[in-house]
């Protein structure tokens, strides 16, 4: 049973843990560098990217995670997690730093404020069956995707689900909709 770490500094941690447990994986909260040693893959959940970014530094997790990512650790970032894994962040705070694990530029809060947050049915490349019920909450979009980035889904022609090697990122929250197919896709790649 693969051990999947979930960065548990702030945000929607337990929804990811539930999805992973439902799929028979072993979720593990990651709060300090020592927690990383045991994990076969990592999820960076939704939350406030500015807050999580700050807490990554104070917990000494930034270097530890960067090192594992450099070694090819499979990682799935949702919403704030996508922002933290991108190469560039437009509209972020000037001191906000990201891991640069996937060659994309993202814009924060690209769909507007909370009153513009929405649910929609999303067609996803490689996913069989019904469209995916996607929940977008003050969501980011991908404004630039590098040549090695696969775009798996779009909204208004803007990428919202991307993959590059072991890195999968979603602008929306698959952990909130009760549909396990994207977690399954991620686990399948480990």
């Amino acid at each position: 049973m693969p051990k999947i770490g979930i960065l548990a500094l702030q945000g929607a941690v337990r929804e990811h843990a539930q999805a992973l447990a439902d799929l028979g994986a072993d979720p593990l909260d990651v709060r300090v560098p020592g927690d990383l040693a045991a994990v076969d893959a990592l999820i960076i959940p939704g939350g406030e990217s500015t807050t999580i970014s700050m807490l990554l530094d104070s917990a000494g997790l930034r270097e530890a995670i960067a090192e594992r990512l450099g070694d090819g650790l499979p990682v799935f970032g949702t919403c704030a997690g996508m922002i933290l894994l991108a190469t560039e962040v437009v509209d972020g705070r000037p001191d906000q730093r990201s891991f640069g694990a996937i060659d994309i530029g993202v814009r924060r809060n690209a769909f507007g404020r909370q009153v513009d947050s929405f649910e929609t049915d999303l067609a996803i490349t490689g996913l069989v069956g019904e469209p995916f019920p996607a929940v977008f909450i003050r969501a980011p979009v991908v404004e630039r995707a590098g040549p090695d980035v696969e775009i798996l889904a779009t909204v208004d022609d803007e990428p919202v689900l991307c993959r590059q090697g072991p890195v999968l990122v979603a602008a929306f929250h698959p952990e909130l909709s009760g549909d396990l197919r994207l977690h399954q896709l991620f686990l399948g790649g480990i």
Binding site: A12, D116, E119, I137, S177
Partner: peptide, 23 residues
């Protein structure tokens, strides 16, 4: 994909609160 966007649903409203957890 459908173009339909549903705003102000329970999931979207409660979802922002879920994102604030631990904060």
């Amino acid at each position: 994909s459908t173009d339909r966007r549903a705003t102000g649903t329970d999931r979207v409203k409660r979802g922002l609160a879920e994102m604030l957890r631990g904060g």
